[in-house]
Amino acid sequence: MGKYERLIFFLLLAMGLLPPLLTDYWERVLTLSLMLSSLSLAQNILLGYTGYPAFGCVAFFGIGGYTTALLMKDLGLPFWVSLPIGGVVSALFALLIAPPLMRLKSHYFAITTLALQLALGELVANLEFTGGAQGINLPIYVGPGGYLIFFYLFLLLTIFAFLLNVYVERSTFGYALKAIREDETAAETMGVNTVLFKSVSFSMMALITGLSGGVYAYWITYIDPTSMFDPLLSVKIFVALLLGGVGTVAGPLLGAFTLEFLSEVLWGRFPKVHGVVLGLLIVLIVLIIPRGIWRR
């Protein structure tokens, strides 16, 4: 790890000391910021380093969340067992669909992943065993730490996602991904097995996104297709990533925290035009800082 990366790593660790100083409100804001951080860091591996924009990445948020919830509710498995399974199911599903899906590039890939997200949402809403449109109720967490546990879970997940990003930034594995981003045919010509590498990158994104969905499901205790396959969440992930700086390890974190805090302030001041302001923000980012705050 380089100097900046170590600094960020320790800042994240230090965040673990914050909760005693926080009110419930700020604890919630920080938990949401960390959730968005983990999701943006996940997308950064795919979009930032591999060049594939999975605009419907929330599909994996839903898969992870629903798998975790169903294992808990139907099989009575504890959360600590269900969550990792949820992540793995999400990652495996990604690995399975990547080879055909990733023959598409840029806009086409983005739109197809979005279609996947919407289709899965509809499927879940109409199937019996997923609870249909009524959704699933989960037991409220009553173990040690109370609701603070979710702050720490998202913090751990963010640290994990951050370390994966650092690994991609510095390893030969990451070189292959960057080569695919810069010029896929050229990477192939160099002897890089592009199908394998981009599939693994897609799967890494799905793993973190799925775990994030699992934690979220238990946190809010009630999930339904609208909340778990929410297209607006996809938008938020991309805005955070673009705002922070895509293809850097610090950018996604910076973007997620800035956006979440900004969002809180705006939500309070302008509850009715919140969406308009978010839209204006996207326009401004693209016009003024197209490469984000933290540039590559």
């Binding site: 981003r181 810069e182 050229a186």
Partner: peptide, 21 residues
């Protein structure tokens, strides 16, 4: 390759190292 097909956003040395894949 034609048109050189370099990894334009990467450094010269990174390009070479990728050639050694």
């Amino acid at each position: 390759a034609e048109g050189r097909k370099l990894f334009l956003g990467m450094t010269v040395e990174e390009n070479l190292l990728l050639g050694a894949w």
